[in-house]
């Protein structure tokens, strides 16, 4: 059997023909990066290739790197292998990677979601022979509501808390979810405050996006200013002394994991909004069907269960170990 076009080795997903890695987790010569989350874009590669919208993000995270940007659908060829990036809808600047050699097409999904969130580009299924997919939420219990319903709930929640003289604190990842939430918060209700980590990342993205105004919480911020308003903070801030200024507060998290009551209890969060930047069960299945692929390789999430199910649908499905984290959402 000839060498597969893409395979997973101890450094990442590797294309030997082009000598290029996709989202490698150890330093390599040349890396194509799907998106800016830390488990997909790591330090130490000699050369980074990514969507141009992702460049400010990874420069902010990784400092000075040698990076070149491409547009979606723009072809670039390395040693006769044709590459192109396509919208993945996961976060701002996220892409799928299409790889073609001798008529054989592979697609690496990176992380993706099928619902258009208005800022991350619209996920586009790409026809291929082999599809390397994430399946973070590859269980039939994960089914997302339309985001409009979730954001309406979130705004109502903020309003209710305000009526009860409480400050609302939403815990979300600083890259991706924070901007998505920000984009839909109703700033007629009150002022939107941010944790430093969120403010800095959002600042990086403001150049290309028109987000509502936010105020970074600093030492000088007064308790009285925060009252009844909303604060966007990273999950790591939960339970720290930083939160003292917000008392009395109500906490919420916005993540796909909030589907289950257990996950919510583990995080000791008052309110869980089910809002994910990953595809839900139906989203994964429809995305895979739309690729018209024969082979599916499941990388991270409920890989065993999901690939077993895909086999019952007639796919040649298997799992591959990667070092992408399962809980970043």
């Amino acid at each position: 059997m000839s060498q597969p076009l893409l395979e997973s080795n101890n450094k990442g997903i590797y294309c030997s023909q082009a000598d290029v890695y996709i989202d490698p987790w150890r330093p390599v010569k040349k890396a194509i990066i799907t998106h800016g989350h830390a488990d997909h874009s790591r330090y130490g590669h000699k050369k980074y290739i990514t969507h141009h919208l992702n460049i400010p993000i990874i420069k902010h995270r990784l400092g000075k790197i040698n990076v070149s940007g491409v547009e979606w659908k723009e072809n670039f060829t390395i040693n006769n292998v044709k590459f192109s990036l396509h919208p993945a809808g996961h976060i701002i600047g996220s892409s799928q990677v299409r790889v073609e050699y001798n008529g054989e097409v592979w697609v690496v999904s990176g992380d993706y979601k099928t619902e258009d969130d208005g800022i991350s580009g619209t996920f586009q299924p790409i026809k291929c022979h082999s599809f390397i997919t994430e399946c973070t939420f590859g269980l039939p219990v994960f089914k997302w509501q339309p985001q409009k319903e979730v954001f309406d709930e979130m705004n109502n929640w903020w309003k209710d808390n305000q009526d009860n003289n409480m400050t609302s604190v939403v815990m979300v990842y600083s890259l991706g979810k924070a901007q998505r939430v920000l984009n839909y918060l109703n700033s007629d209700i009150g002022t939107i405050y941010t944790h430093g980590a969120i403010e800095n990342m959002t600042d990086v993205l403001r150049k290309n996006y028109d987000f509502p105004e936010t105020i970074k919480i600093t030492r000088e911020t007064k308790k009285i200013d925060l009252k009844g308003n909303i604060v966007i903070a990273p999950p790591s801030a939960h339970g720290t002394t930083w939160m003292r200024k917000m008392v009395p507060y109500v906490t919420a998290s916005a993540s796909g994991w909030m589907s289950t009551r257990g996950a919510r209890r583990r995080r000791a969060i008052d309110r869980g909004f089910v809002l994910s930047d990953h595809a839900d069960w139906d989203g994964l299945i429809s995305a895979i069907k739309a690729t018209e692929c024969e082979k599916v390789i499941c990388t991270h999430g409920y890989t065993n269960i999901f690939s077993r199910y895909l086999k019952t649908l007639g796919y040649d499905a298997r799992t591959e170990q990667t070092q992408y984290e399962e809980d970043e959402d």
Partner: peptide, 26 residues
Amino acid sequence: LSKIPSWLFEESYHIVGDLAETIALI
């Protein structure tokens, strides 16, 4: 009623950890 195979239901139940919750979700 959910039109999924029983092994998949069982796996889901095992991960969610609560039968009523699994059913409500699935």
